[in-house]
Simulated assay, not measured.
Amino acid sequence: MKQDLHEANRLSWNAATVAHNSHKGDQAAFFREGGSTLFPEEAGLLGDVKGLRVLHLQCNAGQDSLSIARLGAEVTGVDISDEAVDFATQLSQQSGIAARFVRSDVYDYFREAQARGEKHHIVFCSYGTLCWLSDIGAWARGVAQMLEPGGRFVFIEFHPFALVFDPAWKFHYDYFNEAPVPEEGVGDYVAESGDGLVREGYERGVENFANPHPSFEFTWGVGQVTTALSQAGLVIGRLDEYPYANGWKPFEGMRDIGGRRMAPPEGMPRIPLMYSISARKP
């Protein structure tokens, strides 16, 4: 693991999280009124979670964690950002939806949780998580260690093929990339996507956000991810690809084809923009 890069990313996420949440209005009221931030894809993959222990890795500011907890799960959310975990903890209290949030690098959490014998029925992560992981094999082994026998790993992510493009759909980044990719910092993708990532009541909030902290990303192809999970002992039941991105509009001309599913412009060939994996621990 590259702890120095993880620390840089923590600082970058702390700054970005403030900007992201500035666009989302009164989130506690949204949840008190029965709101959920889950898209149908992850809700379907999760299935009935009532009474189950769910570990939500890289949970960000906790909105999806609380949406899962509302369905009756006992949820633990883990994120590297102090700002995100503080916000999530406060949102849990203000919304009246119980969940536990822990500030930790996922690799540290795996080690500490394994030492105390912690196990879960479901490990879940979604949307923009893998690019922050410096060791995909250690991550997959950690996921497997956190699961009870018969437990499930549920994962949905933006497709790495889509990440080779710049905003104008020009090829720019390597699909195969062994080294961390330095960036100017976590951007305000919530503002860029507007009402795509805010279910209702988008607010202008922080404008022209420029992150003062650089960030570092890692590229993991679908083959690397599935191989790592398989080698960790998980049995992959499904791998699905989707020709749209839920909520996210990173490229020019993306259009909502219904349900905040964002697709390429009319006339452009369909390409995979998301994929999901459902796996089980024997």
Rank of each mutant, 00 (worst) to 15 (best):
M1Q: 05
A8D: 08
W13N: 08
A16W: 05
A19D: 09
H20G: 04
H20N: 07
S22E: 00
D26N: 15
A28G: 06
F31Y: 11
G34M: 09
G34Y: 09
T37Y: 10
L38K: 02
P40H: 02
A43T: 11
K50L: 05
R53G: 03
H56L: 09
C59E: 08
A61L: 02
G62N: 01
S65R: 04
A69K: 12
L71N: 03
A73D: 10
A73C: 04
V75A: 07
G77H: 12
V78I: 15
D79G: 10
D82G: 00
V85P: 05
V85T: 15
D86T: 12
A88I: 02
Q90M: 01
L91S: 10
S95V: 08
G96F: 06
I97Q: 03
I97P: 01
R100D: 13
S104W: 00
V106S: 00
Y107N: 11
R111N: 05
A115L: 07
H121M: 02
I122A: 06
F124P: 08
S126E: 01
I136W: 00
A140H: 03
R141T: 02
R141F: 00
L147A: 03
F153V: 03
V154K: 06
A162R: 07
V164T: 13
F165K: 04
W169R: 12
H172C: 04
N177T: 13
N177C: 15
E178P: 07
E184I: 11
G185L: 03
V186G: 05
D188Y: 01
Y189P: 07
A191N: 13
R204A: 13
E207K: 11
F209Q: 07
N211Y: 03
P212H: 08
G223E: 14
Q224N: 13
T226M: 13
T227L: 10
A228T: 06
S230P: 08
L234W: 12
G237R: 15
Y242G: 11
P243D: 07
Y244F: 14
W248Y: 15
K249Q: 13
G259T: 10
P265F: 08
G267C: 10
P269M: 13
P272C: 04
M274P: 07
Y275R: 05
I277W: 02
R280D: 06
R280H: 13
K281Y: 04
P282H: 00
